[in-house]
Nucleic acid binder design. Structure first.
Lengths: 197, 197
DNA sequence: CCTTACGTACCGAACGCTTGTTACGTACCC
DNA sequence: GGGTACGTAACAAGCGTTCGGTACGTAAGG
């Protein structure tokens, strides 16, 4: 059943899936070719057939992480302004098992990223993009009078991202302390505190 | 310059220092016995003389991290209430090179911690302690009328820690975007948003 | 239609290297 | 001389990577 050309990309997807599982429970520190091979019941040689080196596999894993983050299901964007900001931040929080795995892998990647200049600037760019995506909606909120006129949207975006990711990290380490309703309550109170002035 | 007994603890301190340097620029993923030995110009055998195994060295590194965090220079605590909260959070932010190194190592340790149940609960406890340390001062602030009477100090502590650590991470990846004054301005605005209701 | 040739997919084993660890030797001081 | 403090060198295990071989499917040629 082997050489069915065209399955090549599908096979790479299978490898991606195995890499995802390994990352989700061992982190990048535990990502090894043999671990991935064992996970999918194949040989390490097969992995090299689809990825020329581990470097390529790591790069692919990071692409996959970004892709899955971009393509994750998101809730509908309600009315413009703070309501949309709320929806965007809710889409980041680890409320489901998938969200938790994804966030866990992101946090795990920071060890790698901080040690590698290229990966570090990638991560920095990612944050810049995240803030840029948030900013227009904060501007809209300001226009709607939901935020004080003096508010600085760029800085508020950075603050919102900071709050959200800080909550992500605390939740990953202590899920029992931060169940869904607590996370949502914290986010709502945070947004309310930005609003009322 | 050999067996001067009593130097034993001092020697372990020297090793600690080398471990610190390696961690600060390679992270836990790059922490290796040979890297530490090379860093201090000795043999790996010497390391094993003071630490029976790498496990012990990692444990010591984590202790060191906690100790240096606990014993870091802190600014004076001003008047009770929000001013003290501000001082405590400023003591966390990566404003100096030392603060940056310490935070970098903390973030790096999360990859390890998320993959190891024991380390994960340690980290969870650390967060619990951090919130507990902050809470009384938030209560005091509420008593002083600096916070709304309806404020929940425990939740506010979690929110403050989240904001601060989220800012830490963004700053580590993009120091140029978050120089000292920007970090401080963000913290002050964040605290102001908690206050005014 | 059968045969030959060839490229793809994969396994199993080995390679060389780095890792943590151990054993042994030596220099030193009390 | 005996215990302490190392350096040196080797160890086994695990790593990423390479290589030869096999099985299979497709395409070409008579």
């Amino acid at each position: 059943m082997p050489p069915a050309p065209g399955d090549r990309e599908a096979r790479r997807e299978d490898v991606s899936e195995a890499v995802w599982h390994v990352l989700a429970d061992k982190g990048f520190g535990g990502l090894t070719l043999r671990a991935v091979a064992t996970e999918m019941g194949v040989s390490t040689g097969m992995l090299m057939h689809y990825f020329p080196a581990k470097r390529a596999l790591i790069a692919h894993a990071l692409d996959l992480l970004e892709k899955r983050t971009a393509e994750r299901p998101r809730r509908a964007r309600p009315a413009e302004g703070l309501a949309t900001v709320r929806a965007m931040l809710l889409d980041i929080l680890p409320l489901t098992a998938d969200d938790t795995a994804r966030n866990r892998i992101w946090v795990s990647s920071w060890d790698l990223a901080l040690a590698d200049d290229g990966l570090a600037t990638d991560q920095a760019d990612r944050y810049t993009r995240m803030r840029s995506t948030l900013r227009p909606h904060l501007e809209a909120a300001r226009g709607l009078g939901e935020l004080p006129a003096a508010a600085d949207p760029e800085q508020l975006a950075a603050t919102a991202v900071a709050f959200t990711h800080g909550l992500v990290v605390q939740t990953l380490f202590d899920p029992a302390r931060f169940p869904e309703d607590v996370q949502i309550a914290m986010l709502d109170d945070f947004l309310a505190s930005l609003a009322r002035r």
